[in-house]
Amino acid sequence: MRRSTLKKLLDLDRRWIFLTVLICAIGARFVDFELPVYPKAGVRAMYDKIEEVAAKNGTIIVSMDYDPSSKPELEPLSRALLRHAFSRKVKVIAMTHNPNGQRLAQTVLEETASEFDVKYGDDYVLLGYKAGSGTLVINMGQDFRDAFSKDHAGKDLASFAVTRELTSIAQIDYVISVSASAYWESWMIYGHDRYGFPYGVGVTGVIAPDIFPFLQTGQVTGLVGGLAGAAEYETLIKKPGMAVTGMKPQSAIHMLLVLFVLFGNFVFFYDLVLKRRQEKGHREERRT
């Protein structure tokens, strides 16, 4: 290869790169290939915890603390979690700390519930949105019915089997926050640390590294990070959905990025070698 060709490759018009990314992202959706998804320890911990709750016929809280902008990344996890819980007859109390999240939570809950033989009130309840975040969590710990006396539709919680006996979140067997911002922290600081319930977190890929330290200390039991984590969860419950499908374009783009970086470096070093050789040639020419 000549140096001029290499130079051209090094200064490749970025529109070619954009086009490759686009083709890769769209192409991966249509090409049929299987990706083995292996669940990581954090994801498996959440799955195992729900199995444990199922064994004692317990209740979990799924707090869907995200809004429409992070819906594509987090909704698959909510869906997988609810499917898992409903299939194992775990009672679910759903809620959200995010003012724009109620509509999303309700849709996911209703859609997944319709796939199983579960009944509103007997097997699941939607509390809806209430302001307060940290103070709301404390309130739910001190007196659950003071924090929420009615569900999202204004029906008394005493009329539902799921919530009839509930006085504090300390009685809940597992709380999971599916969160796109700092809401997961409220649950940990004001909830888990005070009332001691087991606590799991599902967050966007960007936030996940912030939670690793708490996974290490045991303050968090179960961590699902980003779409990849959701895909792992879907694999565990043997019901591949949007996340597993989304793994294809995501994997393709990641690999493409790696290839770009490797190729760029190859060209860079090859160019360096050619340059040295040329300089050596010049020197020898001068000598002769």
Binding site: L35, P36, V37, Y38, K40, G205, A208, P209, F212, P213, Q216, G226, A228, A231, M247, Q250, S251, H254, M255, L257, V258, V261, L262
Partner: peptide, 27 residues
């Protein structure tokens, strides 16, 4: 490169140690 590959399913296909290494790098 390790983190990019280690966080997607292909990482597991290449080696089971890759995702662990990726997590270690992040954590």
């Amino acid at each position: 490169i390790i983190v990019m590959i280690g966080r997607i399913p292909i990482g597991d296909m290449i080696s089971e140690h890759l995702p662990i290494l990726a997590s270690w790098l992040m954590e």
